[in-house]
Structures are given as C-alpha cells and as structure tokens.
Design a protein around this nucleic acid. Structure first.
Lengths: 208, 208
DNA sequence: TCGATTATATGAGCAAAGCTCGTATTCTGT
DNA sequence: ACAGAATACGAGCTTTGCTCATATAATCGA
C-alpha cells in the first residue's frame, strides 16, 4: 500500500479555551515522561492519552498524528533553549569576562542534559519532517548577541559571518550534541567537552 | 502497555546458500527504493516483501524486525563510504598536492549525494539504536590515512589527535552532512560547501 | 540415485497501534 | 436561559509488525 510522503498536517483545531491549553500541556508532558521513563518503543498514542488522563479522540483533536506531538515538543525545547542561552549571555553581559561563546555553549550543554531521550526523539521528528531550518531564527538571534559581545574578546576575528557560516557551525554543534547525548558519551559532563566545543567555534570563525 | 527499551536482536538465521544472499540483497534494495521513491511513511515490512518479490515470512528469517533492516542498510553505507574515501585519498597519494582532508571530504559529499532519504533513515536507525560508535573504526582508519599524508600539507599542526578530537570532528561533519542533505540545502552541490568543511576541519586541528 | 537432513520460502492470520467519527458534555456570549 | 461553539469521549475500523505451521528446495552421505 504505497502512501504519499509524510508531512505533518497542522490543520487541526487550535486550543481557544483554558482547559484546551491544559490538555495540550498534559499531552506533551505525558509524552515526555513516557519517552524518558520507558523509552521510544513504549510510546503510542493510546498510551499517551491514558497517561495524560484524557481520551485518544481528544488527543487527535490537537495533533494530527503521533509525529505532530513530537514536533510540538521539539519546538518547545528549541524555544526553551533559546531563552536559556540568551539569558546566560545577557546575565554575564556586564562585568563577566568569560567568552560569550563559552557561555552560550555551556547553557546549551545544560539544556541537553535534561530529558535526553525525550529530546532526542523529538528532534529526530523535527529533522525528519525537514523542519531543521526552524532552528535558524533562534540561532540567528544568539549569533547576533554573541557577535555583539565578543568583539572585545575574539581578537583575530577577520571573516564576516555569512549565512553559510551559520549553517555550518549550528549543524556541527547540534550534530555533536545530539551524538553525545544519544550515545551516552561520558564526555558530556566534562569540561574537556565544553573546551572542545568552544575551540571548534572559535577556530572556525577566527582563522581564514 | 509499557515495553522494554528497543534493541536490535541479531540472533537470526544467517544466509548460507546463494539464493539466501540474494534474498537479503533484494530486501535491502527494495527498502532503499521505497524510501527513496515514496518516503519513510510508505515503508512497512509487508510492502518491502511485496516489492522485493518475496514473502514476509522470508523477510523475517533474516531480519528480526524493521529496524534491523535499516541498521543493515546503514552498515553497508558506512562500508561503502569508507571504501570511497580511502580510495580517493590513496589514488591521489602520489603526485597530487590537493589536501587529503579535502579529498576525503569531497568523497564523503559525493557519497551523501546518493539516495539521500534512504541514507538518512538508515543512519537514524543506526544512531537510534545507540550504534553511532560503529562509525569509529572507519573514521579512525581514514583519520590515520589523512594524518600520514597531511604532514607536508598542514603546516601548523601542533596538537596531537586525541579520541575526543575524533569524536568532535566526526560528529560535527556528520551533523552538517545530515542536515544539508535532509534539509535539501542548496549548499550541498557548491564548492563553498566543500571549502567550509575543509576550513572547519583544518581550523579545528591547526589552532591552539 | 535416493533418502534424510538441513536450509529456505510461503502467506494466512493474530495482536498491537494509529486514527476516525458519531455522540456527549462543557463553555461562552447574549 | 438558551443557542451555538468548543471540547471531550471511546468503541471500533484499518493498518502494520510479526509469527508459525506448512511447503519447497538444496545438500550430502551411502
């Protein structure tokens, strides 16, 4: 039975009342918990509804399919991460002489340390739907902030930052992060890991 | 219905006769074709068997589950890629003054240009099973070859190459490649793309 | 050449999972 | 208080992963 290629259909009812927002919340929360506690294999929509304390029908009123739930989760994570990273950079804006690149990466590493499995599966869905470019605006914001603050810290910054550069470095970083968390690499907690990421970013932008 | 975490069970009959080898071949080929032509959503084991011209039962004699087929595919791709990269480096060994890093990356880019969807899904399965480290031996081989040949080309090579370095750079590269092919980035065919990858690798190893 | 053993192939069908749809309940504004 | 809209429900239809009892083909010793 051949099927058309998958795409997340987002044309579903959007929550307008408070309880509906709660429902969406509860669905995402249950999904994350199942992934984290029982693994991706245990994730099915009936079970999600069960654990969320709602009915399957309700679930499908806000999400057109299982994938859509994961994509929504991923989008949330992205938003949360962006906030965390920006906060980290901004807080240290006055006074701190730690490289903002390091601050940004440190915040990202922290973000990736939480709910690894859930995050991994969610991002897989996001990328799998060809939605990896949704990271772009977040990244641009962060990159700009870092750029502003790093003038005084990155001495040998010669090349101007192009969109291609942004593509390269963000995909590199997410590739590394993803692999590290996915493969349960013992590197993840270490300062060596942070150092190497910082080095990668700085070396890439510094040289010519 | 909670389930134990997924693992690829490989304890299945191994093909001993020629026709059995053919069968395995035909299964992998059909899988790749379906993924490529109709997308991941169209991939189901009944359909694979159908397109392969065999029965489902036969399929499950060589693969314990759907994931296992994809993992097998990914392993093949890794082997093929390794061969292509090594060939590229070796061929240019005598005489060529093109940076071996560039040669290796160029070969890899070519490899990633073929059957994008199938490759993506296959690698997702490999990584999803926590088998990302299977790339290690391939990478080590290539890295060693590159190292041998690049002494005369990479002047400022100061740091010794550690396992951590290898982890960082390989995951970075695969992250970029994956994203580029997945997001159908127009960068993929360009020389700028190759240049940037080369720059990333060289900058990472050269500096500090 | 022939029987016996082992390897390979088959496909109906079971169980689990994705998802729908007709119906019931709750909210919102007037 | 009432109409209409939004939300919730869950039995059950459909699809899909996978098994198992059975059939066919290759291999090999006698």
């Amino acid at each position: 039975m051949p099927r058309p290629a998958q795409t997340v259909d987002l044309t579903r009812r959007k929550p307008r009342q408070v309880r509906a927002l709660d429902t969406v919340e509860v669905i995402l929360e249950a999904t994350a918990r199942i992934l984290q506690q029982e693994g991706p294999a245990a994730l099915n929509t009936n079970y999600i509804a069960d654990r969320a304390g709602i009915s399957v029908g309700t679930l499908y009123q806000y999400f057109s399919n299982k994938e859509a739930i994961l994509v929504a989760m991923a989008r949330r994570e992205v938003a949360t991460d962006e906030a965390a990273v920006i906060k980290a950079i901004s807080e240290a804006a006055h006074g701190s002489d730690i490289d903002p690149v390091r601050l940004a990466l440190r915040a990202l590493i922290n973000a990736f340390a939480k709910r690894r499995v859930a995050r991994r599966v969610a991002f897989e869905a996001l990328f799998g739907q060809g939605l990896g470019n949704e990271l772009a605006s977040s990244v641009r914001k962060v990159a700009q902030l870092v750029g502003e603050r790093s003038d005084r810290l990155l001495p040998a910054r010669t090349r101007p930052v192009t969109p291609t550069n942004l593509f390269i470095i963000t995909r590199a970083i997410s590739g590394i992060m993803r692999a590290a968390s996915q493969e349960e690499s013992p590197l993840l907690g270490t300062s060596e890991f942070e150092d190497e990421l910082v080095h990668l970013v700085q070396a890439y932008f510094a040289g010519q």
